[in-house]
């Protein structure tokens, strides 16, 4: 018979211990976790640390190119990395629906372990709760990273003349989830771009390129993230429609559904604002990284009121608004 999550797995008794040692230790094995404390004591040799937390509720939990476990690790790793910090330790809280097959949980946990090891982070403490049927699984991860001395990266740091790079094709994650959720099949299968970006950030910093701004354009997409940066820094950002990398599958799905690829969520690419003199070198470094082959220079910071504009295919200039409302299916 298929083994399933029961309320006992969250009850603090024997079943829960079994789940922890049988499943979580098997995948997340490390000395901090195995001490079985309700906390983890870790060493961080840095004056400043970066902290972040995020909750993952993606529906369905598995989608082309990954699952909620991939997201839970990559999402928090990336949030920490956007400060320039080196992510080190994660915590992890599961909220699992009663009746969930253990097999599914194992698939999620093994994805988390794979991503953690790829990113070089340890999952050092955690929590499991079981709730009634009907929703979930949900995962919360929080993380801590060490900020190298002299690094000051933030949305408010963009200056006129700086350049904007995107590190990969945009829109894949949102379209991948949507295609699974709605049972849509597009001419080309679209895979989520979900990936940890910390190595890419490290590659820049180690080579002496300190970005002004790093931002992973998750919900709200590239248009949302650029608008935030423009407001934080009080500058105009000019991008070029033609320069933005978009996979054909994402393009046709967006055409069909009436979405703008710039509004679609990403989980494995980031926007990098660098000084003009660093731009070409930064692009080359990014392109030599695992998730950066598709990187492109897409625009620059200009003088003007905080807003985002795009040079259209035909050379005119239009506004780029952040998305509004929930993205819902439309008719043609």
């Amino acid at each position: 018979m298929q083994k399933r999550i029961t309320t006992a797995h969250g009850g603090g008794g024997e079943e829960m211990r079994e789940l922890i040692s049988g499943l979580f230790f098997k995948y997340f094995s490390n000395p901090y976790l195995e001490k079985l404390n309700d906390f983890a004591k870790v060493d961080i040799s840095s004056r400043r640390i970066a902290l972040s937390t995020d909750s993952f509720v993606v529906e369905p939990w598995s989608f082309p190119g990954g699952n909620i476990g991939d997201l839970a690790v990559c999402g928090t790793v990336n949030d920490i990395s956007m400060s320039g910090a080196t992510p080190l330790y994660l915590t992890c809280g599961f909220i699992l629906p009663e009746g969930m097959p253990l097999e599914d949980l194992e698939e999620i946990v093994s994805a988390m372990a794979r991503r953690a090891s790829e990113a070089g982070v340890l999952i050092v403490t955690g929590d499991t709760k079981v709730v009634g049927r009907g929703a979930g699984p949900f995962i919360n991860t929080a993380g801590v990273g060490a900020v190298p001395d002299g690094i000051d990266i933030g949305g408010e740091m963009a200056k006129v003349g700086d350049e904007v790079i995107v590190t990969g094709a945009v829109g894949s994650h949102g379209i991948a989830v949507l295609s699974k959720r709605e049972g849509l099949s597009f001419s080309t299968e679209v895979l989520s771009d979900c990936a940890p970006l910390n190595k890419m950030v490290a590659a820049l910093i180690e080579n002496g390129i300190i970005p002004k701004v790093l931002r992973d354009p998750t919900r709200g997409g590239v248009a949302g993230a650029l608008n935030e940066i423009s407001v934080q820094s009080g500058v105009e950002i000019e991008i070029e429609d033609e320069a933005i990398p978009i996979e054909q599958g994402v393009r046709s799905a967006c055409d069909m559904l009436g979405y703008d690829p710039l509004h679609i969520a990403n989980e494995g690419c980031m926007l990098v604002v660098v000084s003009q003199k660093d731009a070409q070198r930064a692009l080359e470094l990014i392109q030599s990284c695992k998730y950066g082959e598709g990187a492109a220079r897409i625009g620059r910071i200009a003088e003007g009121a905080p807003r985002v504009t795009a040079k259209t295919l035909l050379g005119t200039k239009r506004l780029v608004d952040p998305p509004s409302g929930e993205l819902l299916p439309r008719i043609c």
């Binding site: 429609d241 055409d255 009436g258 259209t312 295919l313 035909l314 050379g315 005119t316 239009r318 043609c332």
Partner: peptide, 12 residues
Amino acid sequence: GTHTVSIARMGL
């Protein structure tokens, strides 16, 4: 309507 969107987006 799809033409309207495309035309607006390319700024024709």
